[in-house]
């Protein structure tokens, strides 16, 4: 499988300046991160607040450029200006606040915004809008105003907007942070469908553990570095370490972990209720 995203020793410093422009302090948000993501993978990046996960995400879309190191998206160096639009087209980005990323006044117009920018012919724009809205099950809302949709529906429209640009990879920067539980479920279901059905590489950045159990691989970030890496099973079997990184594990995993400590014969890293029931009986 081809690599869709590669970072080599990526480091990013936020530089604070005082009124005269003198450097007051440097915060290293991302510190020497090297990772690669293969085409078609579902990657989750976990981390507590301030762990640098959003800063990392902004590098994939060439919104930020590395202070040191390089980021390659689909084989192209993001810090090279002539690659800028290619990179942004191949790696779409969905942000946290659903209200602040919808540009159109009607759902279908918003989904068409990306293809319009790419200079896609009118007829094809309509085809892309239709297929993207159907992929996130929002086709029947195409004539509605975004203001009348719920948060989960708005995020699905945002995902469709990115999808219409035919990206190879979608980066979602805490897409569910501002949603209620049912909205969160809706959005996660849509994201999983993208990965399963459309075979699009998904990079999901989140701090909700439950959302990461379907991922192929999880990266856990702490203080700008990658602290843990592996499949959900491998990562969640290290409950104590996750706790030290100020992260919770899913409730079922925690229960299984405690039961095992109490002496029950259970395997490590149980992720779903069904799995636990199966092992208990």
């Amino acid at each position: 499988m081809k690599d869709i995203l590669t970072t080599e020793n990526l480091t990013f410093d936020y530089i604070r300046r005082d009124d005269e422009g003198n450097v007051e302090g440097i915060t290293t948000a991302v510190d020497n991160v090297s990772l690669d993501v293969k085409e078609g993978e579902f990657i989750a990046i976990l981390g507590a607040n301030g762990s640098g996960k959003s800063t990392l995400a902004k590098h994939i879309n060439a919104i930020l450029y590395p202070t040191e190191g390089t980021v390659y998206v689909d084989g192209k160096d993001t810090s090279d200006d002539k690659n800028l639009w290619d990179v942004r087209q191949s790696a779409g980005m969905v942000f946290q606040n659903p209200d602040n990323q919808i540009i159109g006044q009607i759902v279908e117009e918003d989904v068409g915004f990306g293809p319009e920018n790419l200079g896609v012919p009118t007829k094809e724009i309509w085809e892309r809008v239709e297929e993207s809205l159907k992929a996130v099950h929002m086709y029947e809302y195409r004539k509605k105003s975004p203001n009348r949709l719920s948060g989960g529906q708005k995020q699905r429209v945002s995902i469709a907007g990115v999808l219409a640009m035919h990206p190879k990879c979608i980066v979602l920067d805490e897409p569910t942070a501002m949603l209620d539980p049912s909205g969160r479920k809706e959005v996660i279901r849509a994201i999983r469908a993208l990965n399963d059905v459309e075979k699009i590489t998904v990079i999901l950045i989140t701090h909700y553990m439950e959302e990461t159990i379907y991922a192929d691989r999880i990266f856990v970030m702490d203080k700008g570095r990658i602290a843990m890496e592996g499949t959900p099973k491998e990562v969640f079997s290290k409950v104590e370490k996750l706790k030290r990184l100020r992260l919770d594990v899913p409730q079922v995993t925690l229960l299984a972990h405690e039961l095992k400590k109490a002496g029950l014969p259970l395997s490590d890293g149980i992720l779903t209720t069904e799995e636990l029931i199966c092992q208990l009986s």
Binding site: I103, F113, P115, N117, T122, I125
Partner: peptide, 16 residues
């Protein structure tokens, strides 16, 4: 968000 969706002004833009 607009930049992330490749918005770069009116040049070369098509219309839905």
């Amino acid at each position: 968000a607009m930049e992330a969706r490749c918005y770069r002004g009116g040049e070369g833009r098509t219309k839905m």
